[in-house]
Design a protein around this nucleic acid. Sequence first.
DNA 1: ACGCGTCAAGGCTCC
DNA 2: GGAGCCTTGACGCGT
Length: 328
Amino acid sequence: MKIGYPCVNAAMDCSSSTTFRLASYSDERVATAVADNVACLRRMLEWNVAHGLLFFRIGSSIVPFGSHPVNTFPWQTHFAAEFRAIGDYIKANNLRVSFHPDQFVVLNSPSADIVQRSIQELVYQGSMLDLMGLDGTAKLQIHVGGLYGDRELAISRFAQVYATLPVAVQARLVVENDDRLFSLRDCLEVHELTGVPILFDNFHHECLNHGEPMPEALRLAAGTWDPVADGVPMMDYSSQALGERKGKHTDDLVDDLFAAFLDNLHGLDFDIMLEIKNKEASALRAVAQLRGRGLSPAAPNVPSPPLTLPADPNAPAKAKRPKQAAKT
DNA sequence: ACGCGTCAAGGCTCC
DNA sequence: GGAGCCTTGACGCGT
């Protein structure tokens, strides 16, 4: 079990998302920004290793305009050694990383243009993981997309586009349940159509569900991950910010709620990304809780033990199979 | 030095 | 049909 936080370390005096305005694009600015961003990423990973945080979401904008046609700079070859070094560091320290392309990546959009741009963005982010030399356990996390007034059509369009994705992207893509449109149950349907693993978000599930108790939801999501090809299931963890709009993430880890959540795991292994505003501060407290339970995050250079699932009549889950009445 | 309007990209809800 | 919202950091202009 690894604990992580997204993109930004507030205790650090650098950022891995320096960028610039499209209007001031130049190859030189790309080169400068990427060099700065990769250097900061390295420092954040080192900080994480020193603090027992072995999971990290890399910000999407390491390469400014990485999938935009304006970007003609050959960053893949120019920074090949830097990306490789980051990947070597990740592997040597048993880290796990992921990307979460933002809301503009919509694979099931009715607009062919939007779909194409979305695929280009996935190719760009996936290619960074490729350059790092990381295997298919380093993931690209997206949502199903828009509803467009017809849930079943929207889901089938996702599946159709998924089938056309480059294999390198397919191997990394995971789909996350969201808090308003596509629930865990919808994601399970997407999984049945495509084989794509489900990245479970406990908070989104609390906002949008069909009565599945948390332990059952966790088991269902975990069952969609191939232990070898996909690795330990990833999940996002958060809780409701009190007094705020439903769905608003809390600013700070609520220790009691996190403890109660861990009780739901019943021995399942997950790598947990804390989507909490104060980032690494909460992640450190989560690690302390795990250590208190004897669930110490995996130590550097020691691979996680193989995932063992409770008995599941629907396993093996990764194989494509026809839609059937298995979901109850 | 600092404040603040603005920034590639989508889609949903509300009015 | 249009504005506001999601969510967020950082740019870069204006003062």
